[in-house]
Design a protein around this nucleic acid. Structure first.
Lengths: 230, 230
DNA sequence: TCGACCATGTTGCCTGGGCAACTTATTTTC
DNA sequence: GAAAATAAGTTGCCCAGGCAACATGGTCGA
């Protein structure tokens, strides 16, 4: 049980909160649920007014469309706060699915513990709200980057935009991405085999180098990477 | 000069703040700048730690790429708070350009007026931060929707996804969109003439009806629109 | 009322990239 | 460590949609 508070403290949200406080104010008011691989932590259309803390496992944030097709928005690994963006809205209605990519353990507690005064020392609560705001804006920037990628039409342009943003974010021309090829293709919303093909071509042309999910940009990339975000 | 406070109060951010308070706490600490059509209120890479309040005019939020191509993220009309998403981040670095689509008048003030205590009655400030959070999450949802649209590959799928989300948002099968055809094409990141063409085809097939920027969905759309967002 | 201008709609050509079918590499299982 | 399973890379076909060039209709100023 103290394990929960311990993992909570590893999240960006709670990093500055004492484990004791978490143990007394948060842990007793939430609950822990485990999800088998493939199950949904959050479904589109569902309302969510609780913070979900991913204690163990990884989840994919995905969009599902009427015709059965899907697309990958992001991949989140424990320890991680989910549903940040949902709890701040009035309705809390999710546009996306959060799917367990591997077996997950999730601790959830009502968002009002943070959003409303009372259940927390007020000063702490203010600090947490501040942190919440920062995390939300961070999440927002991730979406902006994704939009920048998907706004490009050509396959190669999409790849370059994505890799450049990654390099900028990691502040290095060499970096690893969190995706397998298939996931990368889903994130870029392109055909997997074409993606592989184009990557090979770009390697041959000396633009990039890569092995699996490790990439290196070879030529000066179009983005003059100063500091990136956050 | 009181005009400024008056327009400020029309924004979602300040709607619950008295005009007097705005006049004393905000207006004297900010400045007003006018931008000719086509000029940049915010450039990508630039740091922004001020709230920008669009008093008059409209701006396009756009991404610019190295090869000169652009894409349209959104269109904002006065009265409106800009740079919401930037001020919450540490660096405040913008990934996008805010371009005056018509002559604009902008009032800006340091974000710290809200983010840090001192320059505002504390209770008011808390309420404003709360509102800020809601607005940011709203903005975030807009990006989510845009992502859902751009994740679709087919032209028709993109159109349907976009129109369905609009219908859901407006809570009606008939609605107007804020875009001209050209802007709509830019938002959808598709070719304008193909967009027109496909729209016509869809009209002929009885799926939709439209005239200019007024649309009506004819057939049951794939999204079971309950309440949408916020 | 006319002409100029801009937004929207139409047509056809051509290619980028989706898709399927396959090969090769890598990891897992017993 | 061989077989099976999974992930990555390769090839070719073919059509959706980018692009250009043009047609139409709507708006505005004189």
């Amino acid at each position: 049980m103290e394990q929960i508070a311990q993992i909570l403290k590893q999240t960006k949200l709670f990093k500055d909160v004492s484990q004791e406080l978490l143990q007394t104010c948060i842990v007793p008011r939430g609950k822990t649920v485990s999800y088998p691989k493939g199950s949904c932590l959050i479904s589109a259309g569902q309302k969510c007014h609780s913070f979900l803390i991913l204690l163990q496992g990884t989840v994919n944030i995905m969009y599902y469309y009427a015709d059965g097709s899907t697309s990958l928005s992001s991949k989140e690994a424990a320890p991680r706060v989910l549903a940040l963006d949902l709890v701040a809205t009035k309705s809390g209605t999710s546009p996306y699915f959060a799917v367990a990519a591997e077996p997950c353990l999730v601790f959830s507690f009502p968002a009002d513990l943070l959003l409303k005064p009372g259940s927390f020392p007020e000063e702490q609560r203010q600090a947490l709200l501040q942190q919440f705001l920062i995390m939300l804006s961070h999440l927002h920037m991730e979406k902006e980057k994704h939009l920048m990628v998907l706004s490009r039409n050509g396959l190669r342009d999409r790849i370059i935009t994505y890799l450049s943003l990654q390099a900028q974010w990691k502040n290095s021309l060499s970096f690893t991405i969190p995706f397998s090829r298939e996931e990368m293709a889903a994130y870029l919303s392109v055909n997997r085999s074409n993606l592989s093909h184009e990557l090979s071509r770009m390697k041959q042309e000396g633009i990039i180098d890569f092995y699996r999910n490790s990439f290196t940009l070879r030529k000066a990339d179009p983005f003059l990477g100063s500091d990136s975000q956050m």
